[in-house]
């Protein structure tokens, strides 16, 4: 399974997102520190989930980081995150 697929599977299972966008940005960081020739080092992720309601921005991102802790420690160098509730995504 690719890292993009793992991100999708884990976030879908944990957050039941109504919208989930995962963009592999790794090519934009070729040659940059943290780049890995195998790719899949930089992702841009937008998650829209009701689970975020009532949570601060920091709490929302901590939750995502916890869900993806294995992926972050193995390969992913940078994860740009937008975490929204369905109302905020309107």
């Amino acid at each position: 399974m690719t890292y993009a697929e793992r991100i999708r599977t884990k976030l879908t299972g944990a957050l039941a997102p109504v919208r989930l966008s995962i963009v592999d940005d790794s090519h934009r960081h070729a040659g940059h520190a943290g780049h890995d020739a195998r790719g899949e080092t930089h992702f841009d992720v937008t998650v829209v989930s009701a689970v975020f309601a009532g949570k601060s921005r920091v709490a929302r991102q901590r939750l995502v980081y916890e869900i993806l802790s294995a992926e972050l420690s193995e390969r992913i160098h940078a994860l740009a995150l937008r975490t929204l509730t369905p109302e905020e995504d309107g």
Partner: peptide, 25 residues
């Protein structure tokens, strides 16, 4: 901070967030 990435911004001793949060705010 219990936060896996850099950068991290602190204001008056309190963690505000990383890059995404600071830009949004």
């Amino acid at each position: 901070t219990n936060w896996p990435t850099i950068p991290q911004l602190y204001v008056k001793g309190e963690f505000v967030g990383g890059c995404d949060i600071v830009r949004e705010m």
